[in-house]
Nucleic acid binder design. Structure first.
Lengths: 191, 191
DNA sequence: CGTCTATTTGAATGTACTCAAAAGCGGTGG
DNA sequence: CCACCGCTTTTGAGTACATTCAAATAGACG
């Protein structure tokens, strides 16, 4: 279990005393998620705060017709989860699975409050993390409401250039909110 | 300037010593925003964390065709702002104005970091606040991507029953992502 | 009362979807 | 190493949900 990426990410916002770091590492769990395996299924309670160290995961909802809608992709260095399920301890409305063989580290929800008590700096860390996520979500809502499909695609390419060439087109279509057929036509129609 | 609603809201998550509360109140600014007046215009840097004490505000983006898209409504007891502009101190992509004569309290962005230093409990308060907002935004993205217009409207009615009968239909249409004409037809077409 | 904005209604249009089928691509096993 | 299988991508025809534009009606406010 290699927590170096996670510690580096934390170190960008707060500094931990050696014993604090040790305690943090002691409550960390490791999990391997092979391609197509689930980390969480819709209806389950979320496992906790999950950080991706390798591979790539996605969270998505399933609509009344059985179609999937991707809410987030999580390459290494990103956190993923159904935040509503996490904070209210209610069944998840999202499923999370792996698009490639992946590895994650997570903090069980049961340990999170204790972590905040012991090491208040984590309040700050997760505040910053959550504010960044909120800004991204807000931006996404603006895009979905304000931009036509073609520009939502362009924006996705701009924001996540490294994801574009490692994701199946079908997944990108689902993220920007169009059918795979429509995205294909869009990309193959000049002008 | 009546901060009782704000203090009550804070008290639900953290407790403050009398001198902490006094310090907090001392950095609070009051502003009246009359109907149709702006709190923030697109392109400006956000004023800071803003809490509504009376009236109702909305944040919205304007697309290439000049159409408005409502991101959030803020009745009394709610916070509002362009979080991206706030945390990165960059120009706002949202405009915020008042739908009714309103009053807000805000903390200037310049004082926020100092507030976190002096009273670390505010790290916790804003962490919780932001997590709740993130959960709501995530839910909204799921709805926009997964539900047809009719059900997005039904969900809005379910989530914000008190807003439905105090908002012009046009504003609700903008929030759920349809034109006012279409919402009108939707509501006047029996099943 | 007059003005301004919101809502309704209608007709024409367009963006994106559904369904179907063919073609491409990658992985796996014989 | 090639053949086959499953999944993704492409392409096409028909359709639907939602938009645009226009005009009439209704409400709210000074």
């Amino acid at each position: 279990m290699d927590a170096s990426l996670l510690l580096k990410s934390i170190g960008r916002h707060i500094s931990l005393a050696p014993e604090e770091e040790a305690h943090f590492l002691s409550i960390l769990h490791y999990k391997s998620v092979k391609k197509k395996q689930f980390l969480t299924r819709e209806g389950e309670i979320t496992r906790g705060h999950t950080f991706v160290t390798s591979g790539i995961l996605r969270s998505y909802s399933i609509d009344a017709n059985g179609y999937e809608h991707v809410i987030q992709f999580a390459p290494p260095g990103w956190w993923i989860g159904d935040i509503g399920s996490m904070i209210h301890q209610r069944p998840s409305i999202l499923s999370i699975d792996a698009l490639e063989d992946s590895e994650v580290l997570y903090i069980a929800e049961a340990n999170v409050d204790d972590l905040y008590e012991r090491i208040p700096a984590f309040e700050r860390f997760f505040r910053i993390l959550t504010q960044n996520a909120l800004a991204a979500h807000q931006q996404r809502i603006v895009s979905i409401l304000s931009l036509p499909a073609k520009e939502r695609y362009a924006e996705f390419c701009r924001l996540y250039p490294s994801l574009i060439d490692c994701l199946p087109q079908k997944q990108v279509a689902s993220y920007i909110g169009v059918t795979p057929e429509f995205l294909s036509k869009m990309l193959n129609t000049r002008a």
